[in-house]
Design a protein around this nucleic acid. Structure first.
Lengths: 342, 342
DNA sequence: CCTCGTGATGTTTACGTAAACATCGTGGTG
DNA sequence: CACCACGATGTTTACGTAAACATCACGAGG
């Protein structure tokens, strides 16, 4: 009695097939499928039965062609390797799914302007209603984004707030909290291990660090530059460990802080008795560093949520206003900070 | 002179528009657009000029509707929060982009059978030609995957090799290398901090650990169970630190190894002088742990590559053979392992 | 009792593309 | 010199859906 045995159907089941089985028109099937009103319960049930029997699945391509919207958001990014990016993407995906949107990942192969432009070119042929650009580096500055008509954009982690809607963690406030925490413990000043020069977040954190020290009338030591990796933090830490004046270090992320911890301790400087260290990000494992790391918590989930909400409201209103949404940060004090040695 | 000012076109530029401007038929535009042969150079140039002038972008929905393929792969997963998953997804995205395919993320909200089934149901309406399922837990076992017709699947990190094509890291061999390394240093036996019981990788690694000890005629200590997190590794480490017989520990991932390191050192057991520790994964920062961690390197990029290649070849041949592809692992000796105290 | 309104359902059409088929012109060959 | 083959291009059609419009039946009100 089975009608759907091994016969490989090159094409799937369409509304017409369901309509034929249910003895109605395909338009009625469409109405049931989209949940439109104006279908009597008995008819609806017949159609649903027929759908089930044939294993009907709406064809999203046809639907998109007809309606002009894909119910898909694109996410352009360089890498998922950084915790911040992958957590943000995860939150974006979760929120989008809840709103009935799918997420398409658009990786940029090379972090250059050409790479970015290439991604936006590909974007033109991609089936997306909007794009979230996760771009921590300054590449957007010089690039005039050529968005396909009708495609809205939200940018994460950038300083393009004057040109696009931007959602970001409140980098500056987080950094201020970190530095003030160290000063309030009695340290004379705070050394800083910064991230790569191209990074916007890195720049913002360094600027806030500098501002707090200046406001407090403290000397501003030269920055140690890293590249976000623990290895680069270790290098920077070696140099700082050699400086007896250094009793407090603010690292621009947790991974570099990890490297700093190792460098200090390998060189006989105890943390936090001799030197205090603060990180940024609050990775899950930073509570298990040796010692557990005082750090600045970022709410990546909230960032992702705001992105999607902002983008969807833009898509609905068909226009996006430039401006920046800041997601607050909080300092998480743990065991890597203490008053300076007396 | 600009023709494309603020006028919002609800519909984009279609082939017909380009054809009209170029003075050819839309079919010729189609041929140029898809790169088909049989268009004279002068005509082609005219069409390309018209495309450029109008800002033409092929409509992927129409293309998909006509051709029946979406040139998109779905990735079903629980979370991007684990390094392995995010790295694998990144590699998948890169490889897929290179093959001209886009990636759609399908997050499973809750890691239950219902959650998985829900994802597969949504999948039916999603525009994908194939799916990669990244599922470390055993949920696939009981679930009969109802794949939409014409959609192929590849599973990562599972034991479903008898039912689906599977790509995975060679968990067992990696674990064997880790345990043998510790035994060859002279340790009498090796303790194990395992991952969650539902995890397939965790199970495989534990089994290999047990096998190596048994083969070598060594006692098999009771396992300490963690949940992959550094915090759970710390808990396990506290218990192991209290056992003077414990001189060698194999943790099922680097994060738990990090927790173990902290627990040992907080309790006066030096690593590696008193206790040796080996992890699994080779996270970028594990080289910066205190001490740098001996661990098993996983080639996530290769896993992602194999997934995409396997899936695409299935899509082309229109059938997938069950079976498992194993990606080799390598032991990376660093500073956390040494001979036992004499 | 006829008409009109209303709700349920059917019919037509268009979305943008590309395969299949049709046409047209040109140069080579018997 | 006529015909044919072939390459370049045009025309028709179908993919699956859903909006817009058409129809139909039935009940209420004049």
């Amino acid at each position: 009695m089975n009608e759907t045995p091994s016969r490989r159907r090159s094409r799937g089941v369409s509304m017409a097939d369901v309509a034929a089985l249910a003895g109605v028109s395909s338009q009625t099937v469409s109405r049931v499928s989209t949940g439109h009103p104006g279908v009597v319960e008995s008819t609806r049930r017949q159609v649903l039965d027929a759908m089930r029997e044939l294993g009907y699945r709406p064809n999203s391509a046809a639907r998109a062609l007809k309606s002009g919207e894909f119910r898909t958001l694109g996410v352009i990014l360089f890498t998922l390797a950084t915790t911040g990016n992958s957590r943000t993407v995860e939150a974006i995906a979760a929120q989008a799914a809840q709103e009935g949107y799918a997420i398409t990942l658009i990786p940029v192969a090379v972090p250059t302007q050409d790479g970015v432009l290439g991604a936006f070119t590909r974007l033109g042929e991609l089936a997306v209603d909007g794009v979230i650009v996760i771009m921590e580096v300054h590449l957007l500055d010089a690039v005039e984004l050529q968005l396909p008509p009708g495609v809205q954009v939200v940018v994460v982690d950038s300083d393009a707030g004057d040109r696009y809607p931007v959602v970001d963690t409140d980098q500056a406030d987080g950094a201020r909290q970190a530095v003030r925490h160290l000063l309030s413990l009695g340290h004379a000043t705070v050394f800083h291990v910064t991230g790569p020069a191209e990074s916007y977040s890195s720049e913002r954190r360094a600027q806030a660090w500098r501002d707090v020290l200046t406001e407090a009338g403290r000397p501003v030591p030269p920055v140690e530059r890293g590249d976000w990796s623990a290895a680069s933090g270790y290098e920077a830490g070696l140099r700082l460990a050699a400086d007896p004046a250094c009793t407090a270090i603010f690292a621009a992320n947790d991974q570099m802080a990890l490297g700093v911890l190792r460098a200090l301790q390998e060189n006989g400087r105890r943390v936090p008795q001799d030197v205090s260290v603060v990180g940024f990000d609050d990775l899950p494992e930073s509570a298990s560093y040796l010692p557990p790391l005082t750090t600045v918590h970022q709410d990546f989930a909230e960032v992702g949520r705001r992105c999607v909400q902002g983008l969807l409201s833009q898509i609905r209103d068909d226009r996006g206003e430039p401006g920046t949404v800041l997601v607050p940060t909080t300092l998480v004090p743990r065991a890597s900070t203490a008053p300076p040695p007396s």
